[in-house]
């Protein structure tokens, strides 16, 4: 125990694709020394019950998140753009599915 303790292992965010054709989904985080190890650890921690067919690991510090204070200016302006949605338009029934 003579070597001075190094710092804590960095934190990684884990994304798992549950089956081929689906997107990778965030499922949690874990500590690992580096990306290669994080992948292995993620396999053991997050896919013990066949939850995944593919894993992404991302250093937690590499994630830039939007500021909750900006929620209003970022997301509210989309609320009145109802013409972006197909249901905004009425089409005669005889046209059928469109």
């Amino acid at each position: 125990m003579n070597t001075p303790a190094l710092k804590e292992w960095p934190l990684w965010e884990i994304f798992v694709r549950s089956k081929q054709g689906l997107e990778h989904k965030h499922c949690g985080s874990l500590h690992a020394a580096d990306a290669a190890q994080a992948l292995h650890m993620a396999r053991d921690v997050y896919t013990r019950r066949q939850e995944g067919v593919s894993i992404w690991v991302v250093p937690s510090i590499a994630i830039t998140a939007s500021n909750p204070d900006d929620k209003g200016e970022l997301f509210d302006p989309a609320a009145d753009k109802i013409y972006r949605h197909p249901t905004f338009y009425e089409i005669p029934e005889e046209v059928g599915h469109m």
């Binding site: 292992w9 874990l30 500590h31 690992a32 292995h40 650890m41 053991d44 921690v45 013990r48």
Partner: peptide, 11 residues
């Protein structure tokens, strides 16, 4: 030695 590895060795 660390929780992650404890789980890995369990596997």
């Amino acid at each position: 030695p660390i929780l992650e590895e404890d789980i890995a060795m369990g596997n």
